[in-house]
Amino acid sequence: MTRYIFQRVIYMLLTLFIIASISFFLMKFLPGTPLNVENKLSPEQQEIILEKYGLNDPLPVQYFNYMAGLVQGDLGISFHFDSTPVSDILLGRIGPSALLGAQSLLVGTVLGILLGLVAAINHNGIMDYTSTLISVLGKSIPSFVFAGLLQLVFAVQLGWLPVALWGEFKHTILPTIALMIFPLATAARFTRTEMLEVLGSDFITTARAKGVNEFGIVFKHGLRNALIPLITVIGPMAVSLMTGTLVIEQIFGVPGIGEQFVTSVMVVDYPIIMGTTLLFAVLFVVIILVIDLLYGIIDPRIRLAGGEK
């Protein structure tokens, strides 16, 4: 097991290296330089700045320098935000995004699984149709529509919560609800389909023949088997939620990383673009690893040799 994880970490580093290289060169193809945006400097001053930040070096040299810094954990210094280290900016911004993402993923998935379960048990019944309706609406209506509606009802009309503010837990409620609709709809849909299939399988009949009651059938025998495919979809969803969704962060005034990323591209802030891309990539590969390990816990058939005697 340790050997497997070690192996996977090596692959992860390799993946990150490739992602870093590709995005470095792609980024350099962006039109303009960091100085285009506030072009109030004389050509001489510009030249001095380009020289100082090493932007006049040939591309391979720049690449080598950046990668050398990266290996030592140095993400560079932002061009745009008063020479703040990139790592500080990212650390300050990832918190709110990750909190919102984790909250909406957790609540959305749990509610979605429950909704899907109820739908599967009540197959073709009224709850099944309700669940289908919720799922279809949740998947097809973009989250910013919900965001607007939530603000209108709970902030403007009822006045329970602020329209857009960040600081306390209650400020996270509305953006979390707006964000969780999608994972909820996805989880409900998946759980329903998988659960129906599992409930029709032979081993459920075996369990019934043993005299297991409906609760045991659904939770002990059914759910675990139905959840295996769901894990696959939750992974990428988790990453996209945790790394922040630009629109929702804008609407609710959340100082998250999604907004940061877009600004950095607009102002061609090379170190921030690289830093954010790499952060997303790290999150992604780590979550994929976690999911692969989770498979082993939920499904003994893919448990690794050596993991258990």
């Binding site: 399988s201 032979d202 081993f203 009949t205 075996t206 369990a207 019934r208 023949a209 043993k210 005299g211 297991v212 009651n213 002990k220 025998h221 675990r224 088997n225 939920i298 499904d299 003994p300 058939r301």
Partner: peptide, 27 residues
């Protein structure tokens, strides 16, 4: 159905055709 749950497995039980699918794979 509740009364049957007490009878199934205790007084009457069943062996199925396909052993490859009639056991719970995650238990």
């Amino acid at each position: 159905p509740k009364q049957m749950q007490k009878i199934r497995g205790k007084d009457m039980s069943m062996i199925f055709q396909d052993p490859m699918t009639s056991l719970n794979p995650t238990m």
